[in-house]
Design a protein around this nucleic acid. Structure first.
Length: 710
DNA sequence: AGCACGCCGACT
DNA sequence: GTCGGCGTGCTC
């Protein structure tokens, strides 16, 4: 009787595939083995999740596994992927892919070449249209299909390639890029020190954590307070864990945040490594080798590091737990904080979350469990002032002269703005016409760098019309000025001073250059959006000007308050905390109390207000919300899908409270839109999740995404 | 994801 | 008529 195995492929599908194991692999393949198997016309690498015997042959034709690699994925990571898939409604294979060691994936480079027959046919003039264009391109040199596709703007190239190859007009040359380094089958492993290290002179809460680590009883703590104090507190804890218990993983929300840990990392006697998705193949292989050597005990990284096969992973530290980057929307969407807790649970490990402005729910839950450790913060020394005035008007008066004086003293000023581009819209002063996107119907944003009108929804770029299409008057930029406008005004008001603009869309290289100029003091005026917040060095500005920071407060989002607080909190980090420094807030109306609390870093009072509001409106943590994203192949199909889902939810869960639906846009996939539903969850979340999984099976063309707030 | 199949409008 | 676009369904 043969032995079979179920295989999961890194595809956006929710099924396992059954294969027969050839005899010579029966003893080799294990759960977690990376195997090569035929799927349709192609061969794919997947992971074995089950090995079994069958009473009788299944009805469908079963193919045989083709080969097996040495690498075996730990079962815990398979469990993690499965569980994350269940909660997020993303395909499990996509999570498994994240756990892949470097250099296992073999890349194949495809090149197309024209044949003799192709050349004669081309000369004969019998070939027309697209086919002719492709052959003409190939006359000079071999090209990859991707290159041709882009050059000729063809949507689907593979049928064309197949056709031409079938007629013998071109040949497909496949070149396997050989693996530079074979990943060792040795997984990262942990070596306990011969002599346990017991740190001395620890504060009481640290002892509590160490006890939990030693017992391997799991659990979680929330560390609040100033960053340096957090590190100081963590040092003996990490030292204890890393010498006696297991690996320590420090997670940061984005790559830029790794830098802050450099010094911390070096304060330990063991080599620490960094792991994130931007490492090159070579760097990954090298890091993997270091991990396999058993010397490394501390890993610093982004979400990608969460899937490293570290055993035992006894401590996961999550830095800046409030950071929105922890919710990944690209690829398989999931919450890194949730995944970290799951991973810790599988490893009997402990989680420490850190932040000086934790999410309201996080703070609430930890307060209930008495696991908040507050290390206190620095006293605010800078002065805070509010103005109800337009930035440019303000700068033209006394305020501008003070800024000029500051600049003469060699100090730096940072302006935080909400809006990219030059103006939010352009209009005709004669008839009131506003230029809009033809597809999305929203006003187009004026971008001076591009010299174009850009749609914020679909990313479509349009040339700026010379005049109003209705009455032929000259169009003007409207109110709601953006970063480019402010930069232009600053350059005019402070002639001779370089103004740097830091916002998304700039080349990473240009950004680095700008940062260098700022650091060197060659540029002292900086305009930036949120993009700048994570890149600018801490405590390097003596003036911080926030332009309409209340803007985000009014977004239709129950988390608007905490998001605004966290944004301001992050901006405050850039400000030098001394008597000479100033934080200036420009609002259009009277400043909401929330802002006053945020600019002073008064978390306690912010929290008290916010938690009252949440209770009043029955938002998390007092209820659970389920966010469902529905993405179809077009807006129409997502809309249809969302209505269908709504109806069926209403029918099967009559008491369910629905908030939504609404449209969301995704910047990274221009033009694609998803419909978002928000549901107030009854106690049993599993029930509704299984319901959604069933719904997905009935409507496979829709991509569902689930996220739970509680 | 890739690929095939099938439907539909717009062109040599 | 048929070419190319797009929606749907399948892969052990």
């Amino acid at each position: 009787m043969s032995i079979y195995c179920e295989v999961i492929f890194p595809l956006p599908v929710f099924q396992t595939f059954l294969y027969r194991l050839p005899e010579h692999l029966e003893q080799v393949v294990r759960i977690g083995s990376r195997v090569l198997a035929p799927l349709g016309p192609r061969k794919l690498a997947g992971y074995v999740v089950e090995i079994k015997k069958l009473e009788r042959e299944p009805e469908f034709e079963v193919k045989e596994v083709d080969g097996c690699e040495e690498f075996v994925l730990p079962e815990k990571l398979i469990k993690l992927a499965t569980e994350l898939s269940r909660r997020s409604l993303s395909a499990p294979g996509l999570f498994l892919e994240m756990a892949e060691p470097p250099a296992v994936r073999q890349k194949v480079r495809m090149k197309l070449a024209i044949t003799e027959k192709g050349l004669t046919e081309l000369d004969s003039g019998r070939i027309k249209g697209r086919r002719r264009e492709i052959l003409t391109m190939l006359k000079d040199r071999d090209l990859s299909p991707l290159y041709i596709r882009r050059a000729l703007k063809i949507k689907e190239i593979s049928p064309l390639v197949k056709e031409l190859a079938g007629e013998g007009l071109i040949v497909v040359k496949e070149k396997k890029i050989r693996k530079k380094q074979q990943t060792s089958a040795v997984k990262p492993h942990f070596q306990q020190l011969a002599l346990p290290v017991w740190p001395e002179g620890m504060p009481e809460p640290a002892k509590k954590i160490i006890e939990a680590l030693e017992k391997r009883s799991g659990g979680s703590f929330l560390l609040t307070g100033e960053f340096e104090r957090r590190l100081e507190f963590l040092k003996p804890v990490v030292e204890f864990n890393s010498s006696n218990i297991g690996f320590t993983l420090i997670l940061v929300p984005e790559i830029q945040r790794l830098e802050r840990f450099q010094r911390f990392q070096k304060s330990f006697p063991w080599p620490a490594v960094v792991w994130h998705s931007q490492l090159t193949g070579k760097q990954k292989s090298e890091t993997w080798r270091q991990l396999s050597s058993g010397q490394v005990r501390i890993i610093l990284g982004t979400r990608a590091a969460l899937f490293l096969p570290l055993e035992p992973l006894s401590l996961i530290i999550i830095d800046e737990e409030q950071d929105e980057n922890y919710y990944q929307t690209e690829g398989p969407s999931f919450d890194v904080r949730e995944a970290a807790s799951l991973r810790a649970l599988l490893e009997n490990g402990l989680v420490i979350q850190m932040s000086d402005c934790p999410r309201v729910s996080t703070y609430f839950h930890h307060q209930q469990k008495a696991t908040v450790i507050d290390l206190g913060k620095e006293e605010v020394k800078y002065t805070v002032e509010f103005h109800r005035q337009d930035a440019v008007k303000l700068l033209k008066g006394n305020f501008g002269q003070e800024v000029a004086r500051k600049l003469e003293e060699g100090e730096k000023v940072f302006f935080l703005v909400n809006r990219k581009g030059y103006a939010g819209y352009v209009y005709c002063p004669g008839c009131g016409f506003v230029a809009r996107c033809e597809k999305c119907r929203i006003p187009l944003k004026l971008d001076m760098n591009e010299g174009e009108l850009i749609c914020d929804y679909c990313g479509m770029k349009n040339p700026v019309p010379d005049s109003c299409p209705v009455c032929q008057q000259k169009l003007r930029p409207g109110r709601g000025k953006g970063s480019q406008f402010l930069k232009e005004q600053l350059e005019r008001l402070f002639p001779g001073k370089a103004v740097e603009l830091l916002e998304e869309g700039a080349e990473e290289r240009d950004c680095r250059k700008a940062l260098k100029r700022i650091m060197a003091g060659r540029s002292s005026l900086v305009v930036g959006t949120d993009y700048a917040l994570s890149r600018l060095p801490e405590k390097s500005f003596s003036w911080l000007v926030l332009l309409s920071p209340e803007f985000t407060l009014n977004l239709p989002d129950f988390q608007a308050g905490e998001k605004t607080y966290s944004r301001i909190s992050r901006a405050r980090e850039l400000l030098k905390n001394d008597e000479k420094s100033r934080l200036v807030v420009l609002t259009s109306g009277p400043p909401p109390e929330m802002l006053t609390l945020a600019v002073c870093g008064d978390y306690e009072n912010f929290y008290r207000r916010e938690i009252d509001y949440r209770q009043l409106l029955n938002y998390p943590p007092f209820s659970s919300l389920l966010e469902i994203g529905i993405e179809g192949r077009s807006l129409r199909s997502s809309g249809r899908g969302s209505r269908l889902l709504l109806e069926s939810l209403h029918a099967d869960f009559p008491t369910l409270e629905l908030i939504g639906p609404k449209l969301t846009r995704k910047k990274w996939k221009k033009g694609q839109r998803e419909v978002k539903l928000l549901i107030r969850l009854p106690a049993a979340e599993t029930e509704i999740l299984s319901y959604l999984i069933e719904f997905r099976q009935k409507k496979p063309a829709l991509r569902l995404r689930a996220r739970i707030f509680d």
